[in-house]
């Protein structure tokens, strides 16, 4: 990947913009729904972090594997999952990708697009991602596994076990830390002895890259480089995308613990604006309108879809 402007680059930026702005509309639509209607699970908003999610995933090939994190839908949408099954999962509808099993925001999956899902216990994707990469290495299929996680999950012991083994085996895996500064109520600065998560990378013998998480294209480029390295068989890379948690841990979290100046509406360094700067207004407005319509239609469709039948309870326990 290069940073050279050119027709490909421009097309990529527009595509990233389109996905970021779509996810932004989705975020706002979901927030509106949760505020007005509430819903059964917890919605962990990813607003403000869409840029890094879409930017990173846009650097993946179609058959690369994705383990997403719990903040928002940007990862999966960027990997090609349609909105309706994502909203369906969120709303516990039979039309969800998990047919009502996942619910909330934690679980969605698309085997055909290699969106492999997420564990409810944060940090489980470290070891699973390393394992998926080990399988790719064994099969020689040339695929790379990308694992997203938050600064909170960086404290899990699974990180140590996975990072160590992945590095020793030079597994084709890329770890992307969305450091938004807060693990629920815990400040990153109070939970880390080093300033950056990426500071830990050298101990595992892998590169640690820090990137501005609000700059989608910068994240894209860093990810593309890490993926290339992984595909070449040179092992894992840890990317730390610096971002900011705009909302609470979940929508409705009043954040009494929070002492940094975040209003929950204003998004400093908003990735939507940054990406939009280079796009002509009329083009951008067209993309926006299309994205908004797409979100509204998908959300309405999800709302209209039936809830899962109880019969699904006994399905999928066994193969």
């Amino acid at each position: 990947m290069t940073n050279d402007p050119g027709p490909d680059r421009e097309q990529l930026e527009r595509e990233v913009y389109r996905k970021v702005v779509t996810i932004r509309f989705a975020e706002l639509r979901i927030r509106d729904h949760v505020e007005k209607e509430g819903f059964g699970g917890f919605w962990h908003p990813g607003i403000g972090q869409e840029g890094l999610q879409v930017g990173a995933v846009s650097a993946m090939q179609d058959d690369d594997y994705l383990y997403y994190a719990h903040r928002g839908l940007g990862y999966a949408f960027a990997k090609g999952m349609p909105l309706e099954p994502l909203f369906g999962d969120l709303l516990g509808r039979a039309s969800g990708s998990t047919r009502g099993k996942g619910g909330g925001t934690v679980h969605f999956a698309d085997a055909s697009r290699h969106v492999l899902g997420q564990g409810g216990t944060l940090g489980s994707s470290f070891v699973m991602g390393a394992g998926t990469a080990a399988a790719s290495q064994l099969l020689g299929d040339g695929r790379v596994t990308v694992v997203f996680f938050g600064d909170g999950a960086s404290g899990r012991g699974t990180w140590h076990e996975a990072a160590l083994q992945a590095s020793v085996w030079k597994l084709p895996v890329v770890w992307i830390c969305e450091n938004n500064g807060w693990a629920l109520s815990a400040r990153f600065t109070e939970q880390s002895p080093t300033e950056h998560v990426a500071d830990r990378a050298p101990a595992y013998g892998m590169p640690g890259v820090i990137v501005d998480g609000q700059d989608a294209m910068a994240v894209h480029d860093a990810t593309a480089e890490a993926i290339d390295r992984a595909r070449r068989g040179e092992g894992p890379t840890l990317i730390e995308a610096k971002t900011l948690r705009i909302r609470g841990h979940y929508e409705g979290d009043r954040q009494p613990y929070r002492d940094d100046p975040v209003l929950g509406d204003e998004i400093p360094n908003d990735p939507v604006h940054r990406l939009g700067e280079s796009i002509p207004d009329d083009v951008r407005r067209g993309i926006d309108a299309e994205a908004r319509t797409q979100v509204e239609q998908a959300f309405d469709a999800a709302l209209a879809a039936p809830r899962a039948d109880r019969s699904v309870i006994f399905e999928d326990v066994w193969a």
Binding site: L116, V127, M128, A130, G131, A133, A134, L139
Partner: peptide, 26 residues
């Protein structure tokens, strides 16, 4: 050594990695 791999002392990787490797068709 690729099909019979020695790991570190890391049971979460041994089992969790196996789960992830199964998802990738092994």
């Amino acid at each position: 050594p690729m099909r019979v791999r020695d790991t570190a002392i890391n049971e979460t990787f041994i089992v969790g990695g196996a789960a992830g490797a199964a998802l990738a068709g092994t």
